[in-house]
């Protein structure tokens, strides 16, 4: 890939739950909001419900459940909770693992600081 100014100023360290390593952001790609499951039978859905699946996103200010891919590593997609204000990762976890409880996560993060 072509190096970009953005990559030059790369700053985040991200923990890959598959490799179990904390690695620089250049190895990863963002992949949108997490826990949006493709409906089992799209044909049965109303236009409104399908629109919501396609386009309506949380756009959180604060903790955000989102997907990342360790594209220049193990190439696996995984989930993360990142605070969109501080960019701090509260957790990363494997795809398919249950959504962590936010209150518990925030309490743990606070204790760790």
């Amino acid at each position: 890939m072509v190096p970009t100014m953005r990559q030059e100023a790369t700053m985040l360290l991200i923990h890959c739950p598959y490799c179990d390593k904390t690695l620089p952001e250049v190895e990863f790609a963002y992949a949108g909001e997490a826990h949006i499951v493709r409906p089992a039978d799209p044909a049965a859905m109303s236009d409104e419900a399908w629109r919501d699946f396609l386009f309506i996103r949380t756009n959180a200010r604060g903790p955000h459940f989102e997907r990342w891919r360790h594209v220049h590593g193990c190439a696996r997609f995984f989930n993360a909770v990142r605070d969109t204000v501080s960019d701090r990762f509260l957790a990363t976890y494997k795809a398919g693992a249950p959504k962590p409880d936010l209150a518990t996560l925030l309490a743990e993060t606070e204790r760790a600081r």
């Binding site: 499951v37 997609f77 398919g96």
Partner: peptide, 13 residues
């Protein structure tokens, strides 16, 4: 390839 991997890993594992 990214799109294929995405569906394979996360929608149809």
């Amino acid at each position: 390839l990214t799109m294929m991997e995405d569906y394979l890993q996360t929608e149809w594992p």
